[in-house]
Write a protein that binds this DNA or RNA. Structure first.
Lengths: 132, 132
DNA sequence: CTTGATCCTGTAGTGACTACAGGATACATA
DNA sequence: TATGTATCCTGTAGTCACTACAGGATCAAG
């Protein structure tokens, strides 16, 4: 049943081979069973697990958060409310990042608006970068 | 004239002492002149320079970008248009980050909306995290 | 039987810091 | 003048989540 190579797992999940090995090293994925010659072998359960990790990463969860999440899932010891609340906390962190970046964006746009955009060696962007 | 300690420079600019030493090591700041006993000494020019770096960092520029920007400024070999265009490119990168984060945020919010938030060990968030 | 694809381990690099350890020096107070 | 504590020094290692080799073994197809 364990018949997928690391390459196939990578292809099925969109996670790079090097990253899969890294996840194993860091105990985010369990040690893979090996073929006689020492190659890693996977099955559909591994695909499912790696999809979970991949999706969490794409939603901005850290590997530490993913480890906690997965251990909740593995033990079955969680409630919908608990997961919901964890998700809300994470969503708030994302929202804060967005608002930080929007502030940067706004400052940059405002700075650029003052430019003559001319062929001259004076620039209000440079000037305002020197302000503390 | 060079009479500021690294601690004073840190206080004036809001940049940590360790970070100032790091910037010197990485040639983002020039090697500081030293007192007889080997302590770093700074002046208002250094304050100005570090403010520039600090402000650039707060606007999301990488240290590499800052090095290029500063060498433009140091040589005086730049035009307003050039700086304006560099800034626009950087602003676009910020905007892309924002839009990526907003997509994450949206998915998270939608996932959370489906929760019963009950005291039960079934959760639609977990279910959808397993989808590829 | 050979060729090229795939796999293995182990190590080092990335970016921008941050956090010590272990010691030297400066300055304010008793 | 002695002392205590604040500040400084160098050098190294850790953080996060990969990514990129080097150098070698093994597999599958023609």
């Amino acid at each position: 049943m364990k018949s997928l190579s690391i390459g196939s797992l990578a292809e099925k999940t969109g996670v790079h081979i090097e990253t899969i090995r890294y996840y194993e090293r860091e105990d985010i994925l369990p040690k893979a069973t090996r073929s006689e010659s020492g190659r890693r072998l996977y099955d559909e359960g591994d695909v499912r697990r790696l999809n979970f990790i991949h999706k969490c990463r794409s939603l901005g969860f850290s590997l530490k958060e993913i480890i906690s999440l997965m251990s909740l899932v593995d033990t079955g010891d969680y409630t919908c409310r608990q997961v919901h609340d964890l998700t809300l906390v994470h969503t708030k962190e994302i929202s804060e990042k967005i608002s930080d970046l929007r502030k940067m964006e706004q400052v940059l746009i405002e700075m650029a608006e003052h430019c003559s955009q001319g062929n001259v060696p004076e620039c209000p962007i440079i000037d305002s970068l020197f302000d503390s």
